[in-house]
Design a protein around this nucleic acid. Structure first.
Lengths: 259, 259
DNA sequence: CGTCTGGTTGATACGACTCAAATTTGGTGG
DNA sequence: CCACCAAATTTGAGTCGTATCAACCAGACG
């Protein structure tokens, strides 16, 4: 068994708490629910940076759940172009129910060193049957995930490079904030400019220049894998950010998005 | 009650059969299952072209199911830009389970005159409980829908205008084929060049020029709302089309994608 | 200390956008 | 059946955002 993750983690949250936090952004869970969740995440493994967690063509057999670190979903084209179609941060499930499909149509790779739970179909059933709140929360998670995917479609289709990058940074900050991994405008940010390019459909060169613009405009600081959003209101303004698609306005919601 | 739809429908399929066809692309359904589906689609309405079926901010209360005609999901930006983030053809469900969310984060509009079933949460429960095959088929539908969304992300992020349009045309042809509304490379195609522009993140002018290129290259004919794909293999080649994301390789699959 | 990855800079090219106008199509009413 | 209108498509000319290609630099690492 490999040693525990060494990914920098400046805040005092355990992996398990990230998961509960994420689902509790939607529904209040009982101690019992939380225990069942912890049970389901018992079986986990580590994946090294840049390694595939699962590859296109593989038969999916587990639901994956990111406990610590970042990962990405990507698709590759025959001409070599690569698109990161989504990002995973702690607390994110990868494809609840995928296992009913014959083969993965995309790959999932670790960005940082990754701690990821592997949940069998049986365990998922055990988790959801008799647990309507958890079931509902998982549904909410699915709906939000696809809402994010739609927002990315909008992002790529209609926003300029500048707006697009700003939007992505804000989204990630807010998603990290939900699971207690972002505060005061600051968070870990392990993506390279190359990753950002693949996620935004830009070239790395242009990402570089655009980030410089964002810095020059006093909107962000970004170095040594640390992001600092200096002016959240203006960032949201220039990126035309509307948080409604994250659906954080629920009963269980207790963290302030701007905390 | 308005008169029945007048949308052109060159093939001999009823609305209900489109729905069953779509789900049966994944799972064989019993006569009983099919009857239950027909039951659930009992309550329907018509929506005129360019009208919203439901708007951003609305509280979702029904699952919608397209029985006849085309619709689109779109998001609008404060600066007026609009992105069509997905398209619906007959047999497509709009957001199974949306009703657990407080508010829609996007709008859905009719492209053609639209016949759409409105299914209440209760009816959805009635449909799924005691019907594992239908439940599974609905899950499959959800998974495929989000896979399509990912492919659009890839499309917008990495493909050129030419490839992008070709890819979209092939996708729509194949999806229509599944529900028996496309044969021999031909299908109804009610999208305007403006719609295509909003769906591909291009301008209408550029869509126009690019379609002309596709015509000049002998790949398609497109006029009077009729699409004819003249050379499917080459279309798939130039658009780097890989049908795996449509997940049509299942037990219930009986239609040939190239029929 | 050399190598590698990630970040930065500069010069140039091109795909897609913009703006503006003309033409065609489809629908409507006289 | 034709006249008319609005919507959709087409064309042309000029511009701009982002890509491309090619170096160069800084820090991490073995």
């Amino acid at each position: 068994m490999p040693p525990p993750t060494v990914v920098s983690r400046p805040f005092l949250f355990s992996s398990e708490q990230a998961v509960a936090s994420k689902l509790e952004a939607f529904a209040r869970l009982s101690a019992d629910d939380r225990f069942a969740l912890a049970e389901a995440t018992h079986n986990f493994r580590y994946v090294e940076p840049r390694r595939d967690l699962i590859s296109e063509g593989d038969k999916p057999r587990f639901v994956h759940l990111v406990l610590d670190g970042w990962a990405c979903r990507y698709k590759q084209l025959p001409d070599g172009k690569r698109q990161i179609v989504s990002l995973f941060v702690p607390g994110d499930f990868c494809d609840i129910n995928v296992y009913i499909l014959k083969a993965m149509d995309h790959s999932i790779a670790a960005i940082t060193r990754l701690k990821v739970a592997m949940i069998t179909p049986d365990e998922m059933n055990a988790l959801t049957s008799e647990r309507p709140r958890v079931t509902q929360a998982l549904w909410w998670h699915e709906l939000v995930t696809t809402a994010v995917q739609r927002e990315w479609t909008l992002n790529l289709g209609q926003r300029s490079a500048y707006e697009r990058l700003a939007h992505l940074l804000v989204e990630l900050y807010l998603r990290l904030n939900v699971v207690g991994r972002a505060h005061d405008g600051r968070c870990d940010f392990p993506l390279t400019q190359n990753d950002l390019a693949d996620a935004t459909g830009l070239t790395a060169v242009h990402v570089n220049r655009t980030l410089q613009e964002l810095r020059r405009d006093g909107l962000i600081e970004l170095e040594r894998k640390q992001l600092h959003i200096l002016d959240m209101p203006r960032m949201m303004d220039v990126s035309m950010f509307n948080a409604n698609y994250l659906h954080l306005d629920h009963e269980g919601r207790h963290l302030d998005a701007n905390a």
